[in-house]
Amino acid sequence: MSHALHRHGTTEQLQNDYTFYARASRYVNREGCGPKLRKILSIALEEKNLVNYGSSQAGKSFKAGLKPDEYAATLDKAYGVAGCFSDKEAVRSLLKKLKEADTGISIVISGLIDEIVEIARGLDLKPHTAFLSLGVHGKRSLLPEDEIQQITTMCGHGMVAAKLSKAVIGRVKSGKMTPEAGAKLLAQPCPCGIFNTDRCEAILKELKENAPGSAKS
């Protein structure tokens, strides 16, 4: 699955949006990987600015109520640990600790390419492979508005509906829902925990501030 790729937005809009994925390979190191994945999870949980985490095996994310112990218990039958950050320094700190832990499990970070490469250089890590997005092709007329895509593409499996995003935006703009509550609601369908509620909250807040009739507009 390429679920952390194709997150929509401009360079400015994609700042402070990072996902991490530790993935054991079925061909190399998946057998008995549970303890290593639990070690990686414990390192990630040490980061104060971990925004969200989860997995499809666990069936839900932190924002949908997944507890660390519940998550850890699934890792003997799983092959990865996923989560997201909105703070570059947290990503740097995570990678530093993972390097020291030397689990041998592959680590994938998504974010702005130049930022990730710069972090890697500072930690004397050598990035191996990049997966670039060449954008959306085909029948683009089917795509929703830009701000909706910024929200829905934070779940790469497509579980966050455009219709739900639109409804939440409407409620936030009208003052019936806070951006924080809206972001939490939108995170519910994404079990992998890479839906960045900090980024979503910022998007909703900006839309509210720029809505007709708001103080800023």
Binding site: S2, A4, L5, H6, R7, G9, T11, L14, D17, S25, V28, N29, L95, L98, K99, D102, G104, I105, S106, I107, V108, I109, S110, G111, L112, I113, D114, I116, V117, A120, L125, K126, P127, H128, T129, A130, F131, L132, S133, L134, G135
Partner: peptide, 23 residues
């Protein structure tokens, strides 16, 4: 190469950090 071909690649990507072993 993509830029020379006029193909726009997004500024964000997934990056394998080269921490898997054996490399």
């Amino acid at each position: 190469r993509l830029e020379a071909l006029g193909v726009h690649a997004r500024p964000n990507a997934k990056i394998n950090m080269g921490m898997g072993r054996p490399l």
